[in-house]
Amino acid sequence: MERLLTIIFVYILVENFVLHRFFGICPFLGVSRKMETAIGMSMAVVFVMTMATLVTWLLYSFVLVPYNLEYLQIVTFILVIASLVQLVETTLRKISPTLYQGLGIFLPLITTNCAIMAVALLAVREEFTFVEAVVFGLAASIGFSLALVIMAGIRERLELAEIPDVLQGPAVTLITAGILSLAFLGFGGMFTL
């Protein structure tokens, strides 16, 4: 239990997937302009990431390892993630068309969200047990959402700020992300695995 709690806090605060490990930067920069899309994206990522970790861990441990097929890891994982994303896309189009419209191009792009692939790969590399792997997936996705939502909040205010001409757009967003990352650096060493 203690270890599970440590995993949760480490991957939400200390080794935040976006601000410390640099996974999932594209959606982080792409959909953080408005709070509404940021929250929608976060929910999609939490679901896909947790499910992806669960499925890939089972596949790896019970299919790939027993048959000595570890070299198929990359191909298998990416196919699992792509089908999961398809599932979420179809569901969302039925349940909430407005959210579906708002997420636009970024929903199919979850497939190439490296945060999700990274969770699946790291869960295997860190040799987590099944429960640990699922908790790890959940924690990493919550960490991703936290960074995304904070960033969206900052960027909504940033629109009113006067920014030097050449730094407008992505440049100032990256610098803001850097300062945010600096703030998260303060959590360093608070929890260790």
Binding site: L19, H20, R21, F22, L167, P170, A171, V172, T173, L174, I175, A177, G178, I179, S181, L182, L185
Partner: peptide, 10 residues
Amino acid sequence: QPAGAFIALG
């Protein structure tokens, strides 16, 4: 540090 990567790229 990670923070420096963001700032340097920006």
